[in-house]
Design a protein around this nucleic acid. Structure first.
Lengths: 335, 335
DNA sequence: TGTATGTTTGAGAGCGCTCTCAGGAGGAGG
DNA sequence: CCTCCTCCTGAGAGCGCTCTCAAACATACA
């Protein structure tokens, strides 16, 4: 059983360099190539990635960095879906995937990532406006693609959805069904998604000439903050609530119910994400569908493209979203 | 900025070998060690893992193999919890984690894993009685720890829970509250968990002298099979149903409700896993709590121990489970 | 036939690290 | 003062691969 290139070289009667060329697609005569391939066939040779990395600086291994609190990762299927999308693409075109989660400090994680030298590039979830880990990766010479964070610096590669536009769309939907006192429960402040969704809401309201003075309540993307936020907004007599994600919308729904009010007759309700449970709420939730799996797979494609052609400039992908209208805003749909 | 050991050697006026000793804890005089450490301090040197791997055969990187259908991974928080547990332990004591999911064929995955040569060892989820991927890993010279699969071959290292004993326990609980026609909806056949939980059920029933002839229905661990299995068992006039996991129990609950029967008065209901939603069902579900996070972390510890002392024989860990009694078997708990 | 051009191949120098081996320094014992 | 031991340290040989360079050979054209 051949273990090294030299073994293969001896077995096939050519030099190590030639075997390397065959394996890596270099210029070799057809006859030689065939002979070497035959030898390789019968020998289950596997190139040593460490050696290859040392010699060429490339391994084919890609890093995926999701520096979130493990509990969040644990609860929120968002990250699992993202990982799923990334891994689907990498399975075909990369030789492996290293995963970096949030169980160390950001500084420590950054150091380890940069230190291993085993990865050709990384994909990193960038939820916050400011993030030392993301900044550190961008500042390093490790090719990096961001998920969910469009940096203002214009040199980073990223994959994101148009949070502002989508929020504007769903807010406009609430306006079009005749609501005028539309409250908003924001996402966690300091996150891109939270800030951008707020911006979209404000843009739509302003364009329609509607007031927002007392209609914005701060949430944190978790269900309880939707419940408490809903109570506050109901006190202020809203006729619709747009929550920055579905989890908070389910909390808000509970607050509406608790007052004996009905959705959507008394209060229309809208969320963001279209996670699986959104369709199963009672009534089913109108929301914005963002393809999380696609965000993962597109970010992997972007990174691979970046690795293949580093000179091509940053890759910037803005994925489309879709307004999903269900009974929480329009009542019983006529069939 | 020092990039290599030679740089550090030059800066601190010693040889490369000595710097290597300082970094790896070899025998060095206190004075030299201090001097070298000072140089390292100010220079954010990071050892190159590829080079280290090539020279020593070790990288500190561990592989985690979860060859499940992505949809399953996506839906079932079991795997995320497992990963969480593994990563918590590896964060401290390993220099990285490679993740291998089920988006390739088992053969292809096996080849890639064995081929990279970048991992010191792997942790692999082994759900099925037969699994070519698991067999291949065990047959290779890569140190391997199994999760959830106690092989009969007695040479493998593994972490598992006592499925048989736990099933016996919860079945016995149903017997003790006076039920006699206790149905069982099995897990997917061919899985260790499915078969072992069935065995435990049978053992408890036999010991109590109860018949099981028409009381066993085949399920597949998913909710719909719990619903349909529940309907079949209700036709056969059971007074209790033990489902091989919580997801199926929630389906079975729905089938009981659909007939206007009440839990636990007419039919007592029990599950297995104690996933978060189990406590939130109406009524809350009696079940077996198995620490999934602990399974992950223990398997990581077992692997690290195996790597540190390969001669110590296989590591075998059987984690405890806990019977969690809620209202689905005992009605309203007196306070 | 001679020169220019192109194709295919091998030799060999690393990539950055670990680890063995042997030499030097210093102390203990005769 | 010499020998023996112990403790530290440096030299140097790899680990398995990639990649440059130049040699060898083939082909084309004048």
């Amino acid at each position: 059983m051949a273990r090294t290139l030299d073994d293969l070289a001896e077995l096939s009667g050519v030099s190590r360099a030639t075997v390397s060329r065959v394996i890596n697609g270099g210029p070799v005569s057809a006859a030689t190539r065939r002979r070497v391939l035959e030898v390789i066939e019968g020998t289950n040779y596997r190139p040593n990635l460490a050696a290859r990395s040392l010699a060429s600086g490339r391994t084919g291994v890609v890093g995926v960095v999701m520096h979130v609190d493990p509990p969040l990762l644990f609860e929120d299927s968002y990250f699992v879906a993202l990982l799923h999308g990334v891994s689907d693409v990498l399975a075909d075109r990369a030789s492996g995937m290293m995963l970096w989660l949030g169980n160390r400090s950001k500084e420590e994680t950054l150091n380890r990532i940069l230190g291993t030298g085993l990865m050709d590039g990384v994909i990193v979830t960038a939820d916050n406006l400011d993030d030392a880990l993301v900044d550190g990766l961008l500042a390093s010479d490790l090719p990096t693609v961001l998920i969910g964070h469009r940096r203002s610096d214009l040199t980073a590669s990223y994959v994101d959805v148009d949070n502002v536009g989508a929020s504007d769309t769903i807010t406009t939907h609430l306006i079009e069904i005749g609501r005028t006192r539309i409250g908003h429960i924001t996402g966690r402040r300091g996150t891109v998604a939270g800030e951008d969704r707020l911006s979209g809401y404000l843009r739509a309201m302003r364009r329609a000439g509607l007031k927002t003075d007392d209609l914005i309540v701060e949430g944190d993307f978790n269900r309880p903050s939707g419940l408490s936020g809903g109570e506050i907004l109901l006190d202020r007599e809203v006729d619709a609530i747009f929550c920055a994600n579905d989890a908070m919308a389910s909390g808000a729904l509970q607050s509406v119910r608790a007052r004996g009010l009905s959705v959507p007759e008394d209060v229309a309700l809208a969320g963001f994400d279209d996670l699986p449970f959104a369709a199963e709420l009672d009534p089913p939730l109108s929301t914005i569908r963002q393809g999380v799996h696609a965000q993962g797979s597109e970010s992997a494609k972007a990174l691979l493209s970046l690795l293949q052609n580093p000179e091509g400039g940053p890759r910037r992908v803005l994925l489309p979203t879709e307004l999903v209208i269900r009974q929480s805003t329009v009542g019983v749909l006529s069939g």
